[in-house]
């Protein structure tokens, strides 16, 4: 697959707000096909908002977002998803009231096509035998880690063009986190551009080819992962100083 070819995802001076509360101030970065970007920063820096703006859940108030070179700014979330961008939101990203199989069908039928549905379901179950066992259980009865596996199965079977994973490893057992990162490596090999929002800085930096550090909704650092560690430490220490939170 192509590494370092065309940008799969580009953000250009993106601002966003929740009602009157502004959350992002001119965020810019880009990810190449088959590359991985780690999005780091303290709580409340705007990491999840970046993920939401990219997938269209929160509208950008200014700036441009391009997926695979075409402008998706202002498009509804479903139209952006159809351009091949997949956003796994923070926390629960699956439908509680539906069964495991229904969750997979909902996602795979559109992306793999109706004809390949059965084959791709089989692939998902082969990759995660646990899900095959539970295929008719309601997802709400699964544990948090198992629910995360359902989310992963959806993107692994048909790798998207861009995968935005928001804290996918949060609260998982270390062995499951290993699974998650193995899955990331897999989809990346198939040409997916990865944006990984992460609290576990070392884990993310080990995977990524680029790092972006956010602070108070702005980009504090863009560059190779090696330089990010220092910035993250700096940002965190600045944050812990009293009275620094409302400097902006």
């Amino acid at each position: 697959m192509i590494h370092g070819g065309n940008p799969a995802l580009e953000l250009d001076g993106v601002c966003a707000a929740y009602g009157p509360y502004r959350a992002l101030f001119g965020v810019s970065f880009s990810v190449q096909e088959g590359a991985a970007l780690a999005l780091l920063g303290p709580n409340g820096a705007g990491k999840s908002t970046v993920a939401r703006v990219v997938s269209g859940l929160v509208p950008a108030s200014s700036g441009r977002i391009r997926v695979g070179g075409s402008d998706v700014t202002g498009k509804p979330a479903w139209a952006i998803a159809r351009t091949g961008l997949s956003h796994v939101p923070e926390g629960r990203g699956v439908f509680d009231s539906l069964s495991v199989e229904e969750n997979l069908v909902l996602s795979l039928r559109r992306r793999a096509g109706r004809r390949n549905l059965a084959a791709s379901l089989e692939r998902a179950y082969a990759r995660f035998p646990l899900l095959a066992e539970r295929r008719h259980h309601r997802v709400g009865t699964l544990s948090g880690g198992q629910q995360r596996l359902v989310s992963l199965a959806k993107v692994l079977v048909v790798p998207p063009r861009v995968l935005v994973a928001d804290e996918l490893s949060l609260g998982l057992a270390p062995s499951v986190v290993d699974d998650v990162y193995a899955a990331f490596a897999d989809v990346r090999r198939s040409g997916t551009a990865l944006v990984v929002v992460e609290q576990q800085v070392d884990r993310a930096l080990g995977l990524a080819s680029t790092a972006v550090v956010l602070e108070h909704g702005s980009v504090a650092y863009v560059g190779p992962p090696s330089g990010a560690r220092g910035v993250v430490a700096q940002v965190l220490s600045r944050r812990s100083r009293p009275g620094s939170a409302d400097r902006r």
Partner: peptide
């Protein structure tokens, strides 16, 4: 049924919820 639970999650699957 999916839309009743979360129309936003459904939109992320590329469905016009």
């Amino acid at each position: 049924r999916a839309a009743a639970e979360s129309s936003r999650l459904l939109e992320l699957e590329g469905v016009n919820a």
